[in-house]
């Protein structure tokens, strides 16, 4: 019975993707290109997490932020 449920769920996705309309196919291509640009290019090369990249521990990160927040003019 359980397998049957899983098989039905699998078939829902499988048939859905196999029988995509032309618009559906085009949209999926756009989604995949967009995700590639966002995660493989933008995130990787342009958006490192500044504090995680430049400091090893939370202590160093908090020291740096406090220094930034309390710098005199």
């Amino acid at each position: 019975m359980k397998r049957n449920v899983f098989a039905r769920i699998f078939n829902l996705y499988y048939d859905g993707f196999r029988n995509l309309s032309p618009v559906g196919k085009r949209l999926w291509i756009i989604i995949l290109i967009k995700l590639f640009i966002m995660f493989a290019i933008l995130k990787l090369f342009f958006f490192p997490n500044f504090l995680n990249t430049n400091f090893d521990s939370d202590k160093e990160r908090s020291d740096y932020v406090i220094e930034q927040l309390t710098k005199p003019n």
Partner: peptide
């Protein structure tokens, strides 16, 4: 997923704020 880009920016451009 266009909103995820905002979260990228939090970590890169607004790190003091994120912290």
């Amino acid at each position: 997923a266009t909103g995820i880009i905002l979260e990228f920016q939090f970590g890169t451009n607004w790190s003091n704020y994120s912290w």
